[in-house]
Amino acid sequence: MNETIIQVRNFKAAYEGRTVLDGLNFEVRRGEVFVILGGSGCGKSTLLKHMIGLYPPAAGEILIKGKDIAHAEGEERRAILREFGVMYQSGALFGSLSLLENVRMPLEEFTSLPREAMNLIAHMKLALVGLGEFCGYMPSEISGGMQKRAAIARAMALDPELLFLDEPSAGLDPITSAELDELIVRLSRSLKITFVVVTHELASIYAIAGRVIMLDKRTKGIVAEGRPDELRDRSENPWVRQFFNREAKAPA
């Protein structure tokens, strides 16, 4: 259970010469729900985009199952890409494809399953996120919460051990957001999927998070790491306490 699945070492991210994050060290263990936390603009999404290999780090390295995605190419890169699924902030479902076709797409790209098998697997994944009845719908015909669930189904198409979720609860009402949290917990328990979740939603953090790291704009690094209740109750850092207590100003 304590096996490391992602390792981040001395990671630095820079955007157009401006350093966004610097000196990050942490690891994600197999089977946990790992939450990356922080205020707006602190580099949460940047970190996630580096972890999934969209950008190479300015310094340091990110290893997924011991493999460095930033410098892998061709077949090697494809093999790493197959290990994880990603749900993007807005869902990023392909608007010209139905939900079933969206979920089927990674299967078409990575496997040689017959068409009927792909359809069945895609249908099963959609059923898993509660959208079994909506296979033929287009993304524009369903609500935002359903789009996010469909995006999770697509991320799970290849049964990855690792799922990255970018702001799963952004733009959703508390009930839909809670349903999504429940889905994450259920998948994590039943399928032993490791989740890396970027969020700033306090309610979700308590519901899902096993371990949390908190990023800070000022230090460009990790200000706190641990279980959410620990951070709330025991953190020495005023900013962390401010965040967990939802206060506009830091306590004097």
Partner: peptide, 13 residues
């Protein structure tokens, strides 16, 4: 996780 009855009909894609 999967209830068989949900998949008994072929999906109209």
């Amino acid at each position: 996780l999967f209830e068989l009855r949900h998949f008994l009909q072929d999906e109209k894609v």
